Simulated assay, not measured.
Amino acid sequence: MGDTASFDQFVHDHQQALVRYAVLLSGSRADAEDLVQEVLVRIYQRWGELDSPTGTPYAYVRRAVTNEYLSWRRRWSTRHIRSVADLPEGEHLDRPLDERDERLWRLLRELPRQQRAAVVLRYYEDLTDAEIAEVLNCRLPTVRSHVSRGLAALRSAIGMPERAWRGRE
């Protein structure tokens, strides 16, 4: 992929997009920044020797962020206990949310990790089923299932009265 200068340029060009993507996965800007930083540190150590199977460094790093999120969340949940009172309101996005955005954000955070990753890859990263399958390291029918079930859960929850979904928090 290149030398240190190309790594610096890559980080300059793509770090914010990677963090935004990781925010959608992790639900927290702070966690997203940590996740991307962990991936970038590991990749920097081997940057000159990497050969991306997809041909683009961004796709390779996005897949690394996704894989790190999927494994990191398992490790994180066993190492960290956060009180609900300790969670700041709206820490997860850079812009103010309207009520519908906040509700959708909360519902997205409730999806299982694989479904959430598949939905974010489809609708935020605009990837095809084949590209999502490569990122998640699974088969096409599995991708379709994750996206379908994730969307069904979101649609079902959105159709619920406000008081019903608030009780699930």
Rank of each mutant, 00 (worst) to 15 (best):
D129N: 15
D94L: 10
W105M: 08
S77Q: 13
E33G: 14
V119P: 01
M160P: 07
R144C: 04
A64K: 12
W72D: 01
E125S: 12
D94K: 01
R144D: 08
E99F: 13
D126N: 11
I132S: 03
D13L: 11
A22H: 03
A130I: 15
A153H: 08
I158D: 09
A152F: 07
T56M: 05
T78W: 12
R109G: 11
A32E: 02
L140K: 00
R144Q: 11
R82G: 04
L35F: 12
D31Y: 04
I158L: 01
L93K: 03
E91D: 03
V39A: 00
L151G: 01
D34H: 09
S77D: 15
H14F: 14
P96D: 09
A164I: 12
E38A: 10
R168P: 05
P53Q: 02
W165P: 15
S156M: 07
R29Q: 14
Y44D: 13
A30E: 15
R73S: 01
V19M: 04
V11P: 01
G150N: 05
R79D: 11
T4L: 12
D86H: 13
L70T: 13
A5S: 14
Y58L: 12
L24S: 09
E102N: 05
L40H: 03
Y124E: 03
R100H: 02
D101W: 07
V61L: 10
L111G: 09
E125F: 14
R100D: 06
L154D: 01
Y123G: 00
R116M: 05
Y69G: 12
R46S: 15
L70H: 07
L154G: 10
S28A: 12
L136R: 00
A152N: 01
L151D: 11
S83F: 15
R149Q: 03
H92C: 12
L111A: 02
L35E: 12
Y60F: 15
L136G: 03
R79I: 08
H80Q: 13
D126R: 10
E68R: 06
Y44A: 10
A22E: 05
E49R: 14
E89N: 14
R46H: 15
D98T: 08
C138G: 05
E131M: 13
L40E: 00
A5E: 13
A117Q: 02
A118N: 03
W165T: 07
V84A: 09
S52I: 15
R29T: 14
P161N: 06
S6F: 15
Q114E: 14
P96K: 02
L40T: 01
G55F: 03
D13G: 11
V36F: 00
L35P: 11
A153W: 03
L93A: 08
